Amino acid sequence: MTPVEVIEGEGAVILGQPHGGTWLPDTVAARLNARGRALADTDWHIGRLYDELLPGATVVRANFHRYAIDANRDPGGGSLYPGQNTTGLCPATDFDGQPIWRPGAAPGAGAVAARRDELHAPYHAALAAQVERVRARHGVAVLWDCHSIRSEIPFLFEGRLPVLNIGSDGGATCDARIEARVAAACQGSGLETVLNGRFRGGWTTRHYGRPESGVHAIQMEIAQRAYLAAEAPPWAFDAERAAPLRTLLARILTDLDHLARSGALATGAHHA
């Protein structure tokens, strides 16, 4: 299994998918406990949710599971949300705060470094290469970071998560017109929406989003009740339930692609 899959498109939008993979090296899988092997924190069917929504989109997806190493975390180990519960570069627990490794089997510094080199680094090398390719072609690149999560996880947040959670790190990672268009479309859909709430953009969005340089990044974290039959095993995709969400996402991505290709963002200026 190759750690990263890339589908090159001719458009201005890149779909980053760091958490949809379920593959684990045998040496990693053997160290997980039963809870870890359940892989409950996968962004289930995220590839299928976005499949063919935007002709010409570039896709960069990690095939490895986040329990091996999290492709949306700072490779230096810094926390995305200081002072809040979260999971790290090589998580010790699942999203419920429960251990995922067999006793004594949690990865040490050497294992973390090896996984960073073998998995995390190739994903971001591929993503960075596509960002540069798309920017060279269009003058700008729009990175849409695709995520999903269970609706209720008390360890991470109170209550039930809105369906659509848009993250731009307070507007720092993309042109204000991108943020405004995405927020307006989501709010107009009737689905519960929040901008820069509990999830305001992970490491990928914050690292690549440099609107002054023509790279605009925005994260979409979707509550899985919007497209799964149930937020529990076997995590089945519900095509009928997902249809309105897919229609909305297709409309948003098409709009962003047109905006980027129009030249309106080509100066790289960050409009506030």
Score class of each variant (00 low, 15 high):
V140Y: 03
R115M: 08
A141Q: 09
L89A: 09
P82M: 11
P82I: 09
W101P: 07
V112P: 00
A105L: 03
G104E: 10
R102V: 05
V134M: 06
R73W: 00
R116H: 00
A106P: 00
R116A: 03
P82A: 12
G77I: 14
R61V: 12
D96Y: 08
A57F: 08
F64V: 15
R102A: 13
S79L: 15
A128Q: 12
H138V: 13
R66M: 14
R115V: 04
G97D: 08
A92G: 12
A71R: 02
A62R: 01
L49R: 10
Y123G: 03
Y81P: 00
G97Y: 10
E132C: 02
R48F: 01
Q98I: 14
D70N: 15
A114I: 07
R135M: 13
A126K: 04
E132V: 03
R133K: 06
P75N: 09
D96W: 05
N63H: 12
L80K: 00
P75R: 09
A121T: 14
W44N: 02
G97L: 10
H124I: 07
R133M: 09
R102N: 10
A71G: 02
I69P: 02
V59A: 14
D117E: 13
G139Y: 04
W44V: 14
C90D: 01
H124P: 02
C90G: 09
A129I: 12
Y50R: 05
A136W: 02
T42D: 00
T87A: 03
A92F: 02
G108C: 11
A40Y: 14
A129W: 03
I69L: 13
P75E: 09
D70E: 11
N72T: 11
D96V: 03
W144M: 11
A40R: 15
E132Q: 10
F95R: 06
Y50V: 03
G104W: 10
T87E: 05
P107C: 12
P55N: 10
L49H: 12
A92M: 08
A68L: 15
D74C: 04
